[in-house]
Design a protein around this nucleic acid. Structure first.
Lengths: 219, 219
DNA sequence: TGTTGGATCTCGAGC
DNA sequence: GCTCGAGGTCCAACA
């Protein structure tokens, strides 16, 4: 890992063309040759960068980073304030705690929070084009397919629609209604779901996990 | 901008929970208090980070970064190898040559490249679920909706299909045909589009820009 | 190896 | 302020 602080200007040409005017920035050169150009602000995304695998050719006041795809990053160094290198060694990497699949497990264990007398048929019910998250029966024994997302977008409604189309061709299952369940449902997705006769269900993670009598409401 | 190289371990809890085992890493502290934790590899994305606005409370061997939303990043410093600060000043920022919007502008100015006598109705024609990129009329005055992408994927065809469904319910517009236009269209997207009676149009950026629209230019 | 869907997405435009 | 679409998206799981 090499860290350079320098007044520089940058030109990138590849998937798009972009330039950076002269300013003082932090240049990070990683062991794999990749280069990151950070300013003192913004978020974690660099102003400009070159991803590995790539090659850094270094002249006196000019760095040129290229890759196989023909992308090119040229950095002109006008003044170098600092140039440090340090061996970091390998990194054990980030360990993260999954939250996504939990919603499915929790709702599968508590189908009655959707309606009294509702029961689980199975999780990951297989169809020809993929598995439906949950298949349940309502209090009158009719099938209901549930698609679960963390954030309910329009794509999820499309997905559930395709499942419902298929499942309703199966006389063993038909008629099958649909419920689109998510922690948050985008307005457009709700419009589309409603238009297609699909109910929307807002899931509260903490409520599902902690309290059995907390019942989300259909609308 | 402050750059610290240190052997550290990290714990994040917020939108998810995650930990980083002990290793030597680069810690970047920006002027707005945001913190980035980089290893010597991966991509431009840090192993862990905290986005602004946030507050860094610094103890002897322990940094604690928090924000209003209750997210928390705790960094335990086991050994500090380097600790440098440098004032970078403001950055003029990245100037990019837009490609996506350009295609829309170029095609909007030259509807006749699709067919003789075709005219623009409007860009960003609003529907209940979002704006369709271009609405034009063919040489016989019939409406045509055009969805423009840089890379034509199956999602784009789905999107255009939804627009067409909606627009064809509007007696003021119906019948509306669809054209899926992109610099590059994936085979699957082309199959789906064709199956739905949607025409595909490959856009050549340089050609579009270079085509003389038959009118004198202002510049 | 291509495809697909998620992301602590980020970023910018439009309302 | 929010919402929505795009990204040099990146990334990993999966077919």
């Amino acid at each position: 890992m090499r860290v350079v602080i320098a007044r520089c200007s940058v030109e990138y040409s590849g998937r798009l063309s972009a330039t950076l005017g002269e300013a003082t920035r932090l240049l990070m050169v990683k062991a794999d040759g990749s280069v990151l150009i950070h300013s003192d602000g913004g978020s974690y995304k660099p102003l400009n960068w070159m991803s590995p695998p790539c090659v850094l050719r270094e002249a006196d006041d000019r760095w040129e980073v290229t890759n196989k795809a023909g992308e090119r990053l040229v950095i002109l160094l006008h003044e170098v304030f600092q140039d440090h290198a340090h061996d970091l060694g390998a990194d054990p990497g980030l360990v993260k705690d999954g939250v996504e699949a939990q919603l499915q497990v929790l709702l599968a264990e508590r189908p009655h929070v959707i309606g009294d007398g509702w029961t689980l048929v199975r999780r990951e019910h297989m169809t020809a084009i993929g598995p439906v998250d949950l298949l349940v029966r309502d209090d009158q024994g009719r099938h209901v397919a549930i698609e679960i997302k963390r954030r309910g977008d329009i794509d999820g409604v499309e997905q559930l629609t395709r499942y419902l189309d298929l499942m309703n061709r199966d006389p063993q299952l038909a008629p099958v209604r649909g419920i689109f369940a998510a922690q948050e449902i985008k307005p457009q997705a709700k419009v589309l779901a409603t238009d297609r006769g699909i109910d929307c269900l807002i899931l509260d993670y903490d409520e599902l996990r902690g309290i059995d009598d907390g019942r989300p409401r259909l609308f």
